[in-house]
């Protein structure tokens, strides 16, 4: 779990600064390059700017929710391969279906397990890099 893949970029989007703070710490610890956004609109701006390989995306946010962000990204071919992990407090089957339908790759519910999140991110990146 050392910083071995410096080119891999992760965007963290959540309206809760404390959650962003925790995830940022975990991802940096795992050696990723991190950017942060606190709502949907900001997230879209950051995506263009930062070109992340992976987005950890909250669902319920002011201005534009996570599903909307994902759908917008998927319409743009340049972000077709960007991985999206939904991280949300809403964990019903319907919410998950909505998440996958809007273009998410993984759906995790809050509160999450630090190791699980890190492992998933690592597995995705290893698969991508191979």
């Amino acid at each position: 779990m050392s910083a071995t893949i410096p080119q891999y970029r992760i965007l963290i989007v959540d309206d809760e600064p404390n959650i962003v703070l925790a995830i940022e710490f975990l991802m940096k610890q795992a050696g990723y390059e991190v950017a942060k956004a606190y709502n949907g609109l900001e997230a879209l701006e950051k995506v263009n700017e930062f070109k992340p390989h992976l987005i950890i995306l909250d669902v319920m946010m002011p201005h534009m929710d996570g599903f909307e962000v994902a759908r917008t990204l998927r319409q743009d071919d340049s972000y077709f391969n960007t991985k999206i992990i939904f991280l949300t407090a809403q964990g019903t089957d319907r919410d998950m279906a909505k998440g996958y339908g809007s273009g998410g790759d993984i759906y995790l519910t809050k509160p999450f397990d630090n190791k699980e999140l890190t492992t998933i991110v690592q597995e995705i990146t290893e698969y991508e890099l191979n």
Binding site: N18, I19, A22, L26, P111, D113
Partner: peptide
């Protein structure tokens, strides 16, 4: 839903940060 969400949000950060 609201109460659940409202509870989960702080619990999420508490759990993540204490685990760290």
């Amino acid at each position: 839903t609201t109460v659940t969400h409202e509870l989960r949000t702080p619990i999420t950060s508490i759990r993540a940060l204490t685990t760290i």
